[in-house]
Computed example of a mutant assay.
Amino acid sequence: MSTFDTELVDRFEALYGGGRALAHVHAPARSEIAGNHTDHEGGHVVAGALDVSIEGVAALNGTSTVRVASDGYEPFELDLTDLEPRVAEQVSTAGLVRGMAHELQLTGRTPQGFDLVMTSDIPGGSGLSSSAALELAVGRVMETLWEGDPVTPTAMAQAAQRAENVYFGKPCGLMDQLSEALGGIAHIDFADPANPVSEKLDFDFADKGYALCLAYMGTDHSVSTADYAAVPGEMQSVAAEFGCTRLCEVPIEDFDGHVNELRAKLGDRAVLRALHYYIENRLVVERWDALCAGDIDAFLDLTRRSGASSGMYLQNVANGGTDQPAMVALALAERLLGDEGAVRIHGGGFGGSIQAFVPLDRVDSFIAGMDGWLGEGNCRSYRISNEGAYAQWL
């Protein structure tokens, strides 16, 4: 065992006792590399698992109760004899654990009580999808401890998405869970949501002379909930005009032929956001091709164009008013980089995080500059991790 595993085992035994077979679980965070608000419209994304993760150890305890202890949170217990969703457990770790137990039961497993100790170095509130990592960590633990057939990364990701939708109460897409389940850099096509098509690439930005940096604005996401919801809402209102549910079902030629009517009925912003979808969806494929070809210059150029589309057409960088933290962060990052690298909004947008591809010889000064403006520790560099979520016996 590694020193890290030994420390986890020691903590586990101090809390719950020893003498049992232990499983180690790993679930990484993720970064959206390409595809800003394309997944919910059945489009393409490129996402990468990161070198920050949830780590844990678990063992069966011979009861019907799950006991969970995680750094920074109050320990809790959960009875597995009732796996129905509970309103009181929405937006809670307990809700996610109950939801994953329900999902793993559907694979033919018999739920059994276990003890789980976890720690995480995923920055809180940073937009790196720690909730999906938690779902996958719990799911892989249950897969390992409860006898049954192996669960594929796609099936585990879909189970995690359903748990988050139904038990946690968040209507998320599948990108976060699937990219963390797969590991590495993955290109995912969501045209068929029941059967997303994915492929992985072994790629390290450092090999091409760049670091992936993320800067977090430290704002309260709840104030932008309505702004987030309006993005898919307006895109799908355009699709509905063609009798469709998502923009992937509407050929661009049909959209082009009805722009004037759409503007008159739905307003300009809905039309602009639909235009972003078509532009960004094409740019995702082109960026994936550039990564596969090892052409970092083409990738960076396309990333800059993606960032411009998000700011101008998708409009998820600023929502008006005097508070525009994401726009300020992008401008400051571009000021530090000048004509080098690339910057773009990351994830949902508005007050979340921005992404920058920074030349390796400028990483330290870039992080110091961004931290000076945003606060110590709000900007850091990440590496792509080729390992997706897994659990294995120690």
Rank of each mutant, 00 (worst) to 15 (best):
Asp289Pro: 02
Leu212Asn: 00
Lys265Tyr: 07
Leu106Tyr: 15
Glu280Met: 06
Gly388Thr: 03
Ala329Trp: 11
Val223Ala: 13
Ala160Lys: 01
Asn195Met: 07
Tyr216Lys: 02
Glu89His: 13
Ala69Phe: 09
Arg305Asn: 07
Gly218Pro: 13
Ala298His: 07
Arg140Ile: 01
Pro123Asn: 10
Val141Arg: 00
Ile33Leu: 13
Thr219Met: 09
Cys379Pro: 04
Leu78Asn: 01
Pro150Gln: 13
Leu201Tyr: 06
Gly72Ile: 12
Phe205Trp: 10
Glu32Trp: 05
Pro196Ala: 14
Val231Thr: 13
Val250Met: 09
Gln90Cys: 07
Leu80Asp: 02
Tyr390Glu: 01
Thr144Asp: 08
Ala23Gly: 12
Ile354Glu: 06
Asp301Ile: 01
Trp393Val: 11
Ala155Asp: 15
Asn378Ala: 10
Thr65Phe: 06
Trp146Thr: 12
Ser237Glu: 06
His26Met: 01
Gln90Ile: 06
Val238Thr: 05
Thr154Glu: 09
Ala240Arg: 10
Leu214Lys: 02
His44Arg: 12
Val66His: 10
Arg263Cys: 09
Pro359Val: 13
Pro28His: 11
Ser129Val: 01
Ser120Phe: 00
Ser131Val: 00
Gly113Gln: 03
Ser120Cys: 14
Asp204Glu: 12
Gln158Val: 02
Val343Phe: 13
Leu300Pro: 02
Leu266Arg: 03
Asp82Trp: 13
Ala290Asp: 14
Phe114Glu: 02
Ala101Gly: 00
Gly35Thr: 05
Ala308His: 14
Ser31Phe: 06
Met156Gln: 01
Val52Asn: 02
Asp192Val: 04
Pro193Phe: 15
Gln315Arg: 15
Asn386Leu: 06
Gly321Val: 14
Ala308Pro: 00
Asp268Gln: 11
Asp79Ala: 12
Gln236Thr: 07
Arg362Thr: 07
Ala368Glu: 11
Leu332Ser: 09
Thr303Arg: 12
Cys379Leu: 03
Trp288His: 04
Gly294Trp: 11
Gly311Tyr: 09
Ala308Ser: 15
Leu116Pro: 04
Ile54Gly: 05
Gly113Trp: 05
Gly99Met: 00
Thr225Phe: 12
Val97Arg: 02
Asn386Lys: 10
Tyr16Asp: 01
Phe255Cys: 03
Gly125Arg: 04
Leu128Phe: 11
Ile296Gln: 11
Gly148Arg: 08
Gly338Ser: 08
Thr219Leu: 03
Leu174Asp: 00
Cys379Glu: 02
Gly349Glu: 01
Val328Ser: 14
Ser385His: 04
Ala368Leu: 08
Gly62Asp: 10
Val231Lys: 09
Gly233Leu: 05
Asn36Pro: 13
Gly56Trp: 04
Glu180Asn: 04
Val231Cys: 05
Glu334Trp: 07
Leu266Ser: 05
Gln392Pro: 03
Ala47Asp: 05
Ala34His: 10
Glu241Val: 04
His102Trp: 11
Asp289Phe: 07
Phe168Pro: 00
Leu128Ile: 12
Gly349Gln: 02
Leu275Tyr: 04
Asp79Glu: 09
Pro171Ser: 06
Ala211Phe: 13
Ala159Phe: 00
Arg11Gly: 05
Arg305Leu: 06
Arg67Cys: 05
Leu360Arg: 15
Gly320Val: 07
Glu77Thr: 15
Asp115Tyr: 14
Asp254Glu: 13
Asp364Phe: 15
Gly369Thr: 08
Leu262Cys: 08
Ala331Ile: 08
Glu74Asp: 12
Ala326Phe: 08
Leu96Thr: 00
Gly243Tyr: 15
Val250Arg: 08
Ala101Met: 01
Leu83Cys: 15
Tyr228Gln: 07
